[in-house]
Structure formats: structure tokens, C-alpha cells
Nucleic acid binder design. Structure first.
Lengths: 126, 126
DNA sequence: TGTTTTGCTACATAAAATGTAGCATCGTGC
DNA sequence: GCACGATGCTACATTTTATGTAGCAAAACA
């Protein structure tokens, strides 16, 4: 691979601390090497099921199994992977009593995504 | 595959017309079968390079090659695939003189994504 | 005319996602 | 104590997707 090397740096791009998460296998984000956090964020959100996971947690926490079911029964492998990435990115946390939920940062992010709901309705009727 | 069957319905989910795009190989969106446009949208945006492509076109049109370079020299195969999907979704169009650019709908969508830039900056400094 | 540039594709290789099964742990009820 | 179910998470073989290189045909220049 001689082109854009992929996913080689930690998440968030300039953090330097891995609080709140066990070591994910690939706790990195493509684009973060450029020093452009937006690229790192777009890469993170552009991975399969990531947006959906955040969306499903928008108004309640879910256990890992419930989250999986909410995501059209996606395979546990990928849900665990995405959840680990999102925890490393400090967007998601595991509360032993309630399951997975958004962090304060994650809620900030989600608020920006909520308008997508209305857009999607318009878009589907075009 | 006995679980969630993937990407079987046209985009946007309820359109019924394929204006503005040559037949993409997979002009469909996972989740659209549920009748929940937001799921279809999250699936579309959650494919690799899709958010990045929209982002790179936020303030100017780009030729296919320029778009590819802007996307960290991603492989032409996937850029063409994503571009075809976005055209089928009526978010992106090809203007023979300027290259690829956002449609009016695409611009609507992008305006919702612009705040991500500031969020990303805060997020990377946490 | 030849030379670029364009949009796009072929195709072999590498990487990621899927689907099934199942492990270890923790709490609850008995 | 000890089943029992639910939880978080993992193994692994198969399928799907992405990558990287090369290159084609058509259009736009020169």
C-alpha cells in the first residue's frame, strides 16, 4: 500500500490518553494524521454501523445485545468493534447498570445529527 | 444470510425514479426497507468515503480525479462507486463543465454537517 | 493531428463485515 | 452453596467490500 495509509493514529487525534476504554484492536482514525480533526471525525462516523449506533442511543442506553438488535441484528463482532472505537473516542461509555450510553461529548455530537431525521423525511419524498 | 438482508431497495427509499444518474451497480440503501428514511440515510452516509466526498465538495465542484486526490487518493473504484450512489440519491450531480458538485438537496444536507467542523475541533482537544 | 484530461472500468490482492457458536462473569432466586 | 439467565465479549470460517495498479474510450484542447 503506497497510497493513503489508513487508520494509524489514536482517537481523538490529539488525545494521548486512553481513559474509559479497554484497548480496542484498532483505536485509530483515518485522516487524523493530517492534523485535521474533521477528517478524523468523518472517517470515524463513516464506518459501517457507527452512525446507526449513535442514533439508536439517542434517547436511552442499551445493553450490548439490545443495541445489536436495534441495529437490525448486525453481527456482534462489528458492533463490539464499533463500540470499542466509540468508547476510545470518548463518545460512548458503558454503565454497568444501564448498558451503553452516550457521553456528554457524544450527546453534543448527536444533537448535530438530530436534524438529519427531518432531512431524511424530505429527501425520501423527493 | 438469514439476518438483516442488506441494501435491497432503491435510493431515496421511496423515490421510484432514477433521474440524474446512470444505473449504479448498487443504488440501494440498507435500512430503507423498514420505511424509516433516517435509517436509509444513516446507512448511506455510513459507507466509507461518503461523508468525506460530501465534505470535499462543500465549497466547490471537483472533477473525478480532483475529488479522488482530495480524498487522500482513495482508490478510483470506491470513489466511483460512492459517487454513483450519491448521484442515485440525488445528493450529487455531474456538471460536464465543472465536474462533480452537490445538488440543492445535497447542499441542504451539507449545511447540517458543517457544524461538525467545530465539534471536531473541540473533540480533538478534549 | 497528437496530446491531455476526463469519467470510468478490470482485476488481482488485501481488508473488513457477516453469521454462527460459544466463553467467562455477574447478578438473582432458590 | 448452586443452578440459571443475562451480559460483555471473542473465535473463526465465509462472504462482501475496499485497495492499488493499470488502462480504456471519449471529449477537450493543442
Amino acid at each position: 500500500m503506497t497510497k493513503a495509509t489508513r487508520r494509524t493514529i489514536a482517537t481523538p487525534p490529539a488525545q494521548g490518553h486512553e481513559q474509559n476504554a479497554r484497548p480496542a484492536k484498532r483505536p485509530s482514525v483515518r485522516g487524523s494524521r493530517t492534523g485535521r480533526p474533521i477528517m478524523a471525525l468523518l472517517d470515524l462516523l463513516g464506518r459501517r454501523w457507527t452512525l446507526r449506533i449513535l442514533w439508536e442511543l439517542r434517547e436511552r442506553s442499551l445493553t450490548s445485545r439490545a443495541l445489536r438488535e436495534a441495529c437490525d441484528d448486525a453481527s456482534p463482532t462489528i458492533i463490539q468493534t464499533r463500540v470499542a472505537e466509540l468508547r476510545a473516542a470518548n463518545l460512548l461509555e458503558l454503565n454497568p447498570s444501564h448498558g451503553y450510553g452516550l457521553t456528554a461529548t457524544g450527546q453534543d455530537l448527536l444533537e448535530m445529527l438530530l436534524p438529519l431525521h427531518q432531512f431524511a423525511e424530505r429527501w425520501s419524498n423527493q
